[in-house]
Amino acid sequence: MTDCEKCREMISCLIDGELSEAEQSLVREHIASCPECRSVYDAFSAVSEQMHEEEPLPDGLHEKIMSGIKARPKKKTGIVWIKYLSAAACLALVIFAGIKSGMLSPAENKVDSNDLYVAETLPVLDGRFTGQSGNGDKTTYTLAQNAKTRAAVSAETAEKLRTLLAPAEDAHSEYVVSGEADYAVSFDDGVEPDFVLIYIDDGRVYADYGNGAFAAAGSAQEIRDLLDACAGE
């Protein structure tokens, strides 16, 4: 190997264990015959060794980390978004509601993403959302049949819904949910977050804005009543 500069880059790779066996022996041969590259190898190795020397953890750091984690507010509340709502604005609320039973036919509706306002980062969901496919700059979400109702609702209704879907006072952790959401609600009034999946289980409501589900403030009955009213609004 005649190119010392190239060799020195390979020395760096050698120290990191990123060379093939053939490359390793090439570099080692060169080092053995080139004092300058040998000294580079020694210097790089010395620096690497020095960097690996770990200091012990300072006193109190572990406790500080754990107390910081425990003190952390568990989640953002939904309340803060509401104040950005313009009371005068007329909102369109898109609701995909369906009857959670086995009697639905497996037929599907394809819904254009422009109508859905669904963030593309949403995971593919089971149940009513049966799939997601890309087509150029549009993403199509597939919904189970009869899951689609579109409703325009008032700002008050949207506000009420967001309040019901805010974390419950005793909500203290997030849940990973899977399976069929009972409702998917998309707000298109420009207020974030604008999409929420609602799971109703054993009378308790869980809302998932895309960061894990949490127990919601509203009861199953309140939310069902409101959504039914929305569909009729």
Binding site: R8, S12, P35, E36, S39, V40, A43
Partner: peptide, 28 residues
């Protein structure tokens, strides 16, 4: 690679790498 080279040059210039190590190679 460039980080290591720069680091060694700094250590050499500030007298933290003995001349027996790297003096020629680092200035190459």
């Amino acid at each position: 690679f460039r980080a290591r080279k720069r680091l060694c040059t700094f250590l050499l210039d500030s007298g933290n790498i003995p001349d027996s190590l790297a003096s020629k190679g680092m200035k190459g």
